[in-house]
Nucleic acid binder design. Structure first.
Lengths: 194, 194
DNA sequence: TATCATAGAACGAACGTTCGTTCTAGCGGA
DNA sequence: TCCGCTAGAACGAACGTTCGTTCTATGATA
């Protein structure tokens, strides 16, 4: 026996997948609704049946990806015993994402969402960033890392991996990021450990 | 005595200044030629007298800012005696830029130029980035910094300041970056010094 | 089982708007 | 007079969106 309407939202997901590919390749404004129709194989009328307008497709994508990232961040920060282990796990997760679903990372990290989602806050004020800041404060209080401004801590730990990720999803870096994890983390931990 | 025709290109510069403000606030696609006309006070006809089209305005901006950045990078890397001093000077320069001309940095670092300047290489393959990589290799050979992949070195040194800059030009960081230079650099140099 | 009724998914031509660009007329200093 | 420059109306293309219609699956009725 089948699940209740397992295919009900199949076209909806098809639209989202196609849109993510297009947005990450050509950007929001460079992607027309006709492009989405061609890439997804779903007709214009059907697209507007599932989404109110173009912006709502972008919002749906953004929210879903941010939620996923937020969950993972929260997961590692609460289950790993140390700040070090949590950060390592997070960076490994991002590095793996850069290899497996580069489109998602590109859309989430690279795009200036304020250009086409003006009512959304920039990603750095979003939940994952706040979770990190709080975890950093606790790690400083516990003496695991040196004392510094929480934002400096966060940028020191994640600034360089993020830049590596952008180089990778842009196709400038030809080797998988996982090859560089140890080296990169070695630098980061020297920088902040107590 | 005045320079030769100092005012000849006054409208041209007015257009570029206005466009930079608009692009950094609303993005390339969010800015119409009518917006540029209003912001610059130069008529549509005059704008098209000085520039072939919208893309050429963006290219002129991009090239000018990149050239300026390239010059500075080259200057510090060749005149400062150590890699450490050169990097410090560069980061201080960027931090100062973030305070004084945030629009320029925002346009140069944040925008996905591939969306509207498809024939331009991403900024990370541009001259300043290459200069840094080469300087990093020399510093490793000289024993000033530890051995690692040159790209890891570059992202470790500049990844975190760049992220601080983005937080600042986005208005998330409320204090001038110069306040955080010492703290940030302390982390960076721990990370990479031999 | 056969027939009809209904809902809503899918369709794509057509619409109105906005955009970048072109065009033509005219201004003003040399 | 000439010419660099300015002006802004007009143009055509491309865009996001709408809308009247068709298709399809399901349920009700007899």
């Amino acid at each position: 026996m089948k699940d209740i309407d397992p295919y009900q939202n199949e076209p909806r997901q098809e639209i989202l997948d196609a849109t993510l590919r297009l947005f990450s390749a050509k950007g929001y404004f460079g992607t027309s609704m006709q492009d989405i129709r061609k890439e997804s194989g779903v007709s214009i009328g059907a697209i507007y049946h599932y989404f109110k307008n173009k912006e709502e497709i972008a919002t749906a994508l953004y929210d879903a990806l941010l939620e996923q990232m937020s969950e993972r961040t929260n997961h590692y920060l609460t289950t790993e015993k140390t700040f070090e282990a949590a950060c390592q796990a997070l960076i490994k997760y991002f590095f793996a994402m850069a290899e497996e679903t580069p489109h998602a990372l590109q859309f989430l990290l690279y795009a200036r969402h304020r250009e086409f989602l003006p009512h959304k806050n920039p990603i750095c004020t979003a939940k994952p960033f706040e979770l990190l800041i709080e975890a950093g404060k606790r790690a400083m209080a516990a003496g695991e890392v040196r004392q510094m401004h929480p934002v400096v801590l966060a940028t020191t730990v994640f600034g360089s991996p993020m830049r590596l990720i952008l180089l990778r999803v842009d196709g400038i870096m030809e080797f998988p990021l996982t090859d560089f994890f140890e080296e990169s983390w070695g630098c980061i931990w020297r920088a902040v450990s107590a």
